[in-house]
Design a protein around this nucleic acid. Sequence first.
DNA 1: CGCCAGGGCCATA
DNA 2: TATGGCCATGGC
Length: 213
Amino acid sequence: MQHRFQSIYDRLLDHYGPQSWWPADTPFEMMIGSILVQNTNWRNVNKALLQLRPHLEPVLIDKMPIDKLAQIIRSSGFFNIKAKRIKAFIDWFKDYDYDIGQLKKKDKNQLRYELLKINGIGRETADVMLLYAFHKPIFVVDAYARRIFYRIGFDMPTTYDGFRMVVEKALPSDLQLYNEYHALLVQHAKEHCKSSPICKGCPLNTICEQRLN
DNA sequence: CGCCAGGGCCATA
DNA sequence: TATGGCCATGGC
């Protein structure tokens, strides 16, 4: 039972193949995207990123009036709040001269603590940044992970860090593993486990059926 | 049409 | 600690 999370991962990887996440060209774009995607469909985020593309540099966004930024990212929804959150993130990033390399040298927990202090960056957003921009091995607990593990029948903790710790204790602290795991859960959720309790052609069918019996 | 998406903050109990 | 209201667009 200790390897159940490994087993899920193996099946997903076998079925979907490597995902090579996050869908962004640079770490900076990745981090902006992680704020834009908060409780938002990726399609809408992509539209916003397309509009933002010409200004997709820390200095430019720092100089940009917040109202202009809000209008540019309009299609991602919650645009006033997200513009404020992006500004707060830039303020922090600026303290490190927008230097990803410098920040990557920081201890994982220290960096996580700093990200969580930024207004508008909660646990999930901090963790995807840690994983995909700063290359820290960490399990991302999002709505998809909760839904999929719930459907399988796992009795997971309700708190974010409780959930995360249960998974991380069962897996090796491997960057590639966590990178692919989150991406695979998202990919899987987009194709399966949407509304019906069980779906055809689902790579996790065997496990889901065991729960129903 | 109504529903909801890869959250997080804040007020309240 | 744990709910509830709020933020908002666009695809289905």
